Computed example of a mutant assay.
Amino acid sequence: MTDRTTSPAPAPSPAAGPATLLVLADGRFPAGGHAHSGGAEAAVKAGRIRDAAGLEEFCRGRLHTAGLVAAALAAAAALGLDPAELDAAADARTPVPALRTASRKLGRQLLRAARAVWPAPGLDALAAAFPRGAHQPVVLGLTARAAGLGPRDAAYAALYESVGGPATATVRLLGLDPFEATAVLARLAPALDDLAGRATAAAHRARDEGAGVLPAASAPLLDIAAHQHAQWPVRLFAS
């Protein structure tokens, strides 16, 4: 089959270690994620998250839908697939305009931080190709590549972000005990490990068959809530 690996980036940096992944996945990395709740604000208002148990159920569902999709896109970008093809795939998997806007805003902010921390021609090319911002998972994957990380690392970063953001937001929204929120993330670790493997395998398949084979798991309730959340006149988080 035709090899669809057409990333403008040169050969990735020498392989980085776990410490680099920690920097990228750190919630203090200035990528703008602190302003987004990943749907948790809408879920709290709707009564779907009231305590740690509700947070865990919400995050588990998010992991298997939006998290898996983002992880596969990030892994494919880190593997070197064409960013334009991946961005189009991300657009097709994000039906709600509010979520597309949020993803591109986050991508733009992440790219600014990434170019300062891990300068690379591939990141410069992405900024030139998408002046209004590429989708965040695509930027995350190319950032991982520029940092010398592999596709599985990119998948882990995307998956952790997909639940870490809602957990942090719920602490602020409900006054939830931070210990309980962190315990939720710890209990989700086995699922995160499994999904990172699935996302990476999908990325390798997409290298040969194209981005269309990447996961397209849907979360209609998240989509509907995001659309409604964007209409609120007052809200604590951007999404």
Results as ranks from 00 to 15, higher is better:
3 D>G: 14
5 T>C: 14
7 S>P: 05
8 P>E: 07
9 A>I: 01
9 A>S: 08
9 A>D: 09
10 P>N: 07
11 A>C: 02
13 S>G: 13
17 G>R: 03
19 A>S: 11
20 T>A: 07
23 V>W: 04
23 V>Y: 08
24 L>P: 06
26 D>G: 09
26 D>L: 02
26 D>Y: 06
32 G>A: 12
33 G>V: 02
37 S>Y: 00
37 S>D: 05
47 G>K: 08
47 G>E: 11
48 R>A: 11
49 I>Y: 08
49 I>E: 12
49 I>R: 14
51 D>F: 06
51 D>K: 12
52 A>H: 14
52 A>N: 13
55 L>F: 03
59 C>W: 02
60 R>W: 04
60 R>V: 04
61 G>N: 12
61 G>C: 04
63 L>A: 08
64 H>Y: 00
65 T>I: 11
65 T>F: 08
67 G>H: 11
73 L>P: 15
74 A>H: 00
77 A>D: 07
79 L>A: 13
85 E>F: 07
86 L>A: 07
90 A>L: 00
91 D>Q: 09
92 A>K: 13
97 P>S: 06
98 A>M: 03
99 L>G: 04
100 R>Y: 01
101 T>S: 13
101 T>E: 14
104 R>P: 15
105 K>P: 07
107 G>M: 04
110 L>V: 03
113 A>T: 10
114 A>L: 09
130 F>P: 14
131 P>A: 12
133 G>F: 07
134 A>F: 11
136 Q>S: 15
137 P>I: 15
137 P>G: 12
138 V>F: 02
140 L>T: 10
140 L>R: 03
142 L>V: 05
146 A>E: 04
146 A>M: 07
148 G>T: 12
148 G>A: 13
148 G>D: 06
149 L>F: 00
150 G>T: 01
155 A>Y: 01
158 A>Y: 02
165 G>Y: 01
167 A>Y: 04
167 A>W: 03
168 T>R: 15
174 L>D: 09
175 G>I: 11
176 L>Y: 01
177 D>G: 02
181 A>I: 04
184 V>R: 11
186 A>L: 03
188 L>S: 14
189 A>Q: 14
190 P>N: 11
193 D>R: 13
194 D>T: 15
195 L>A: 12
198 R>V: 10
200 T>M: 02
202 A>Q: 10
204 H>V: 14
206 A>P: 09
207 R>P: 10
208 D>I: 01
208 D>C: 01
211 A>L: 02
211 A>R: 10
213 V>H: 06
214 L>H: 01
215 P>A: 01
216 A>K: 10
223 D>S: 11
226 A>N: 14
228 Q>D: 15
231 Q>S: 15
233 P>K: 12
235 R>L: 08
239 S>T: 13
